[in-house]
Amino acid sequence: MKLWLVWAVFVSLPAWGAAGEPSINLDAWLNQVAQAAQHLNYDGIVVYQNSDDVEISHIAHRIDHAGELIRQDALSGSPHSFMRLNEGVYCYIPEGNQVKIERHQHHRFFPEILPIPATPLAALYVMKVLGHSEVAEHDSIGVSLAPRDAYRYGYLLWADSQSNLLLKLIKLDAHQQPAEQFAFTQVNIGAAPNREQFQSGFADKKPIIVPSRESPAADNWHVGALPPGFHKITQTQLALPDKPQNVVHLVYTDGLATVSLFIEPLAQLGAHLPRGLSSHGMMSLYAHPLGAYQVTALGEVPPATLIMIADSLNLTGSK
């Protein structure tokens, strides 16, 4: 009996709160939520879950005269910390009495997930208010973003009704079922975390600077056909261990969904070239050869998006 009730509750969840909700300007709301994550001080515990993985981390975000400071410490799995001061990102990986420090060109953290401005998302997703619910002991407004086409998946967001800080994000799969979730389980909003919290915390370990694997890439790869809303945000080349030539990394996003293309010379790959399509949860993966190169596309998008982007890729003159 109780089991049926549980299922009934689950099935009826999306309907809850939809009625009688005062209308809010969702475009403006989404912009405020996008900006709150960048402009507010906060400190809390974030749990990331997918169907077979759970990762817990501590996130501290501070805005002061020096700019934006973010620290993310993994509390589960292999220990590592990310530290960001404005645009400089470093990953700290402790090992024994050493700590490896690697520079990253970029790193995106929950809850800084939404693009600023977030307005272009309205053309790609249908927004709907889900109502109020409690997240990490904060009254939150839930909104669903349903894709307008088949090139992206849907999202459910909850943001603190007072500060607009994004507190929970659920990524939905092709069947509108939760596939991944980021959520604060506890968060202090408003009070700036101490500056000392952003010291590396590995002062007792010998620092080893690992050279950044990223370097600028020439702009000679172009995609002929992109799904609506997608645009390129970066092109770099990655130096991978035991690979003589760098791998070109192109990143495309519609603001929420992100696709990575990796391009490398066929010559440095073994005889058995992987090709084809696979997906696991929300993550799709598509590999195929293109001339003298192997292209691997992956991202939390439907396979069709990867195929469209990767198949229209071409190499334009060298420069």
């Binding site: 997918n50 993985d53 060109q105 991944e180 990655l238 261990p241 990796f262 993550m283």
Partner: peptide, 18 residues
Amino acid sequence: NNFIAAHRDFSPGASSPF
């Protein structure tokens, strides 16, 4: 794994979903 780690700088999620 290297590809996924690189992707994760732009799209937070599981360290190694595959």
